[in-house]
Computed example of a mutant assay.
Amino acid sequence: MSHTKIKHSALRRLTLVTAATATALLVTAGPASAHVEVESDKAQALAENVEISFEAESESDTAGITKLRVVLPEGIAPADVTYGEGPKGWKFTSADDGYTIEGPAVKKGVNAEYSIVVKQLPDAKELPFKTLQTYEDGRIDRWIELDENSDNPAPFLKLKAAAPGAKPISPSPSRTETAPSPAPTPEAAESPASSSARAEKKDDDSGLSAGAWAGIALAVVVVAGGAVYLVRRRAAASE
């Protein structure tokens, strides 16, 4: 092989190595892939009755996923979210700021897939669904960063612009607790007879009863009358 051919071969190998290295650097420098994926066929602002699907990728070879805790984005109320489908035996529970689905661990290395239905999507360009992913051994993966280039990015659902004429619908009424009726007081629960008896007892406790005062008044009248009679009799006898 001539010196010229050897030189060209070496240059070719160097070019291939350089290109491969540059490609590896570009891949490494790119944004971290979200480990909870989210998608919807109706990903459009102000769309109604939208089914949203999630896939939480398994990051463990030794334990299965048992729970997913999701914080809803601004503009979606927990009352406007219903459960669609999910792993067998998993239950859906609403929270003040989102929801939780949990149940028996899925198989090791298997992704957890589920769906929800939202009454109406807000008028926004993208929606982050912060997610805490728990495994049966207690490990928790926190996909909560709002920076998509971070190591633990939250899954984002990109939305198309709202359709012409689309408007926000009335929000679902929030659940209100009905205050229990106050328990009746002992006085209110008494019968009229017992109430009267209690009033008389109160009179006895505080002083003489009305009947006693009437008797005293009669005695005073009788005594006064007798005194007047005696005075008149003595006056007549002295005349």
Rank of each mutant, 00 (worst) to 15 (best):
A217N: 12
D147V: 03
T178N: 08
A20W: 05
E145Y: 02
D203I: 08
D203A: 15
K160I: 00
L208R: 11
P173F: 01
A95K: 15
R232C: 00
E113D: 08
A43Q: 04
N149V: 00
A183F: 12
S191L: 10
S9T: 10
S191N: 04
D123G: 03
A43N: 02
P168I: 10
A105Q: 02
L218I: 09
A212F: 12
V110D: 05
D151E: 10
A19W: 06
E39N: 10
E59W: 07
A77V: 08
V106E: 00
A162H: 03
A210S: 08
T28G: 11
E239F: 06
P192W: 11
D137N: 14
K202D: 14
D97C: 06
P128I: 14
P164N: 02
T66M: 04
V110H: 10
A32S: 13
D97Y: 12
E136L: 07
S33F: 09
P78I: 12
V81I: 15
G215I: 07
A179K: 06
H3D: 11
E39D: 09
A112I: 03
A24E: 07
G211L: 13
D141E: 11
N152I: 08
A212P: 09
A179S: 05
E136N: 10
K119I: 03
R12Q: 12
Y83D: 15
K158G: 11
D61P: 01
K67Q: 13
P182H: 03
K119W: 02
E239Y: 04
N149M: 00
V106S: 00
L218W: 10
T176Y: 05
T28L: 15
V27T: 12
P186Y: 01
S94F: 06
A20V: 14
S174G: 15
A112S: 12
A95T: 15
E85W: 08
I101K: 05
L16D: 04
L218S: 11
F92H: 02
V222K: 06
A224G: 15
L68T: 08
G226A: 11
E51L: 08
E39L: 03
A105R: 01
E74T: 13
V220E: 05
T66C: 06
G75T: 09
P184Y: 04
E187L: 15
G64C: 00
Y135I: 10
D205W: 06
L25G: 10
P155I: 02
A10T: 13
S58C: 04
P87V: 01
L46V: 01
L68G: 05
I101G: 08
G75W: 09
G109Q: 00
